[in-house]
Computed example of a mutant assay.
Amino acid sequence: MRYHGSCHCGGIAFDVEGELTQVMECNCSHCSRKGFLMWFVSREQVTLKTPEANMAEYTFNKHAIHHHFCPQCGCAPLSFGTGPGGKAMASVNVRCLEGVDVTGLKHVQIDGRSF
């Protein structure tokens, strides 16, 4: 299935292809403060609809994940990084996808504080 996502103002827009069955709820200092519900997919499943230059970036801890946010509205719809096997990955903030009811998805708790 194809989903469309964006930041609040539309300055960052993207499509993501895949089967969304569960979200990961991380307790790290970043995700828990922002209320992220993350869906991890391969980077090739995400198609940016706006220029990458529209995105600001934030990294912390090991600086392995590039958390992208909109410098206009502050919304953080996705992140890019490398998975454990070396594959390019994307983490989509499911709360930024149109038409997705997060209450119907399985929520998996992740202990990101321990990473």
Rank of each mutant, 00 (worst) to 15 (best):
Y58T: 14
T82C: 15
L48G: 05
Q109D: 11
A56R: 03
A64R: 14
L78F: 12
H30E: 08
A64V: 13
Q109F: 06
H30F: 15
H4N: 10
P51F: 04
H66N: 07
G86C: 07
M24P: 02
H8P: 00
L97F: 06
F14K: 08
G10V: 07
Y58L: 11
M55E: 14
Q45L: 09
E44L: 06
Q109L: 11
N54S: 09
E57G: 09
V108H: 08
R33C: 06
A53Q: 08
C26P: 04
V92Y: 00
C26H: 03
K87F: 07
E57S: 10
M1C: 08
V102I: 12
A90I: 13
W39T: 03
L48D: 02
Q22H: 12
G10D: 04
A13E: 10
R2A: 09
F69K: 01
G112A: 11
A64C: 14
E17G: 12
A64P: 11
C26R: 00
V46H: 00
F80T: 12
S114Q: 05
A56L: 04
C73W: 00
T21W: 05
C75G: 11
H63N: 13
V46K: 00
I12M: 15
C26T: 01
W39N: 11
G112L: 08
A13P: 06
C26D: 03
P51V: 03
G99Y: 03
M89S: 12
A53C: 06
H66Q: 07
T50V: 04
M89F: 12
T59S: 13
C96R: 07
V23F: 03
G5I: 01
E44G: 15
H67L: 01
V23T: 09
G35D: 02
E19H: 09
F36W: 07
D111N: 15
V92N: 00
G85F: 15
G83W: 11
H63F: 10
M89C: 11
I12P: 13
A88T: 10
G99L: 01
K34Q: 14
K49A: 06
G85Y: 15
E25W: 03
A53M: 05
D101N: 12
C7R: 04
Q109W: 07
G74M: 04
E19Q: 09
V16H: 01
T103P: 04
Q72I: 00
P84V: 15
M38W: 13
L37W: 09
C75R: 01
K87I: 06
N27R: 05
C28D: 04
F69C: 01
E52L: 15
D111F: 14
G85K: 15
W39L: 15
H30P: 08
E19W: 06
F115R: 15
H68T: 14
K87Y: 06
F40R: 08
H8T: 00
C7D: 02
L37G: 05
V100S: 06
S114V: 06
E25G: 06
N54W: 05
K49F: 02
G10R: 02
T103V: 11
H67F: 01
T59E: 11
H8C: 00
